[in-house]
Design a protein around this nucleic acid. Sequence first.
DNA 1: CTGCATCCACTTTGATACTG
DNA 2: CAGTATCAAAGTGGATGCAG
Lengths: 218, 218
Amino acid sequence: MTRRDYGQYCGLARALELVGERWTLLIMRELLARPSRYTDLLDDLPGIPTNVLSTRLKELEEAGIVERRIAPAPQRGILYAPTEAGQNLQGAVIALALWGNAHLGEQEPNEFVPPSSVVMALRATFNPGAAHGLTATWEIHTGDAVMYAAVADGQLATGVGPAPGEPDLVITVPSDEVLTYRAMMQAISNGAAELTGQQSLLEKFARVFTPRAATKAG
Amino acid sequence: MTRRDYGQYCGLARALELVGERWTLLIMRELLARPSRYTDLLDDLPGIPTNVLSTRLKELEEAGIVERRIAPAPQRGILYAPTEAGQNLQGAVIALALWGNAHLGEQEPNEFVPPSSVVMALRATFNPGAAHGLTATWEIHTGDAVMYAAVADGQLATGVGPAPGEPDLVITVPSDEVLTYRAMMQAISNGAAELTGQQSLLEKFARVFTPRAATKAG
DNA sequence: CTGCATCCACTTTGATACTG
DNA sequence: CAGTATCAAAGTGGATGCAG
């Protein structure tokens, strides 16, 4: 058994060997929310040392969980994005996040809400039934973050950043800081959001993204 | 931000702060499969340093994820067991294990199969529909491991160790080492298992525990 | 500016020995 | 049985340097 391995032929042990080190799953959360450059990740994960980030990215790439892409014309540079194996991690990321939500407590003054965590919450609460037959694109502004969600053919596409196409409805939730998914949804249902576009799509939004109960033990 | 915290108000970050350190989730896998004594854990997690185990148990207890119990009469000593918060971790543990299963590759000579991982696989593949109206207790022997599964009222109770009551069917899968869930189920369906008890319950067993597809990304 | 590599102080982990 | 003590090795955090 080397330092990094557990010597167990077990899915959990292997998962932890691959993505169990400090910062790794937070990096994956960022990349699942949007392909990012090295400096994007440094900005979105304040406190991560540069050498740790570069080591993690290297290891994830070697393991086939993340791939490097050449960023398209306007930006240039390298984009890191999850491979299919990396995308399959989302279920585990969401399961951990749901469990951790119950242990969040009050927000400390030095704690910020990562926009990627709001995107994960949108994916976790997506209700395919309510999205059936609906085609719509929402863009959400809260704090200085921009996120989008698009529904078509009962499928959800969501991420950090402006909507890929023209949004049908822009929802602006006024706030100094990025709000949690929960606070954001509450503000929206309280009518605190400013709307630009097809206002009728606001009700659909609340219906498409509905929290359900977390998984209990078996 | 202290060393251990991420400074993020996010379920994933909080989960990793609580159970993201090395060995922690493997300890939780063991405890989810059966309440264990300190020395049980040392045996079941070969390679874990004693000080790391005691530190982790202390932290998990402080966080309300694990609790100490006085072991009942025959054994004595201290039993560590998951609290309800700890039991709720099972969904995340299983999600990680399912993802890791895809990256297992071939079993290395120095790698062993933890019985607790087989129990997790039983829970992950439990099919409530097929268990409806069935009451049965199976005891499974493979390598030197013993596990049980009991179904009643459509509910599953399973863990490492002998069955709590008298098993209806004892399934012995001959093998030097503990087999993976997959290999075990294959051996059973190949008729390689020795049976003691109500042989008709073997077919039920295979029906109650059926793998389904893993969760894909959204 | 992006995308790292290097250096150093500090913390955590691993291995072993030892104790109530 | 259930840990604690000790120490070396490895990992992490923070600062800085630097090439393309």
